[in-house]
Design a protein around this nucleic acid. Structure first.
Lengths: 212, 212
DNA sequence: ACGACTTAGTGTCGTCAATACACAAAGATG
DNA sequence: CATCTTTGTGTATTGACGACACTAAGTCGT
């Protein structure tokens, strides 16, 4: 089957930088490429736009197919269009940022992806294509959004302690926050509602909160 | 000449919402479509991505070709990919926002395409395609950026008075600002440098400032 | 020339958010 | 039951933001 056009058309693909929290640190989901080019290298999940498919839907579908991950938050943060960025043909990459709660880490690879794996940001492998640059932009976009707190909920379970929320905030922002000031900020934003339940750990129980 | 691919490829185009200030109000640049579809309707300037052309360059080129306008600031703010948005074929629109100083309003009346014209936002004609929605998103993106003041410089001449800057701010934000508070904010941001020159108008001369 | 007009430009106060800082409360563990 | 660790709170200071009224400087009309 062949598709013919009067003018050259680029291929259009989505690439997704999926982040989660593991042991308090931000991790990104990468797949090992099963085919050429860059066979065996690590890359962001992603793939080609299908006919009559919206870009958002493409990102969601590719993520599901390649890693069996259902993203809660999916945000477009940029396009990458350098002519030589894919050696096969011209590919415009529409880049998305996704956040995932840490307890939904069931990973599973399919044929496009030999395997999917989480990587801490300070232990990244070499990345295929221009994905290192895409990832850098994803982190910047994520940092810019995190100050509104709301996006962080996607990194946490449905109910969470304020310490967990602060941990997510610190991991994304990349710096530490004062506990009392952070709690005051959250209170000012009025973006969480306290529940009547507590989580009992090794020490004083912590109250659970949920998104307001 | 024909271009054939093993899988369907969408067309990729850029559309640009160019804003400027005219008589203190924000205006947007529209072109009258010379051909089908939507012949005779008004639309955002834009056009198809060429082989080996970056998206940013495509937006800049199309703007120049269709309206003879050289954009100072060009910012990507979203993609539009609804399958039916162009009746001819699948077209992914990569949308840009541009700002132009008001004294560079030489529009070419005799371009090959129909005419280009500025429209105040409260006197818009019906727009072709989904350009009304794209424009709505452009305004939202512009409003979000304007609070940092810096982007507004592109709407003004190289040197400007604080009243002009405030006028641009108000036009973009869509609400009035207190003169003293605005000046204090600008002073805090330290984003302008005062010059030794004054502009002499009908009344007390105003000091000229330039981007810091 | 001079008074009226119009725009440029400034100071203060109250409020509220952001920063820094120290201690009490609650439960787990040995 | 003493100790340890984590949760959770109050206060003082600073700096930004909002509201508010007046002086400064030059033009224009008479």
């Amino acid at each position: 089957m062949a598709f013919t056009y009067a003018y050259p058309h680029p291929a259009v693909a989505t690439d997704i930088a999926v982040f989660t929290l593991r042991r308090g640190a931000l991790n990104v989901l990468l797949i090992e490429r099963a085919g050429e080019p860059f066979k065996g290298a690590w890359a962001l999940p992603g793939g080609f736009l299908q006919p009559d498919e919206e870009l958002d839907a493409c990102a969601r579908r590719e993520l599901q197919e390649e890693t069996s991950v259902e993203a809660e938050v999916l945000v477009h943060f940029g396009n990458f269009s350098a002519p030589g960025r894919d050696p096969r043909e011209r590919v415009i990459s529409v880049a998305y940022l996704a956040l995932l709660a840490s307890d939904e880490l069931r990973l599973q690879a399919d044929t496009d992806a030999a395997q999917a794996q989480w990587f801490a940001l300070d232990a990244l492998p070499e990345l295929a294509f221009d994905h290192a640059m895409i990832l850098k932009h994803a982190l910047a976009a994520l940092g810019a959004r995190a100050r509104e707190i709301q996006p962080l909920f996607a990194l946490l379970p449905p109910r969470f302690t304020l310490s967990q929320l602060q941990g997510a905030y610190e991991a994304v922002i990349g710096e530490e926050a004062e506990k009392r000031n952070f709690r005051k900020m959250v209170a000012t934003l009025a973006c969480v509602r306290e529940t009547e339940d507590f989580v009992h750990g090794a020490h004083r129980p912590a109250r659970l909160y949920e998104p307001a």
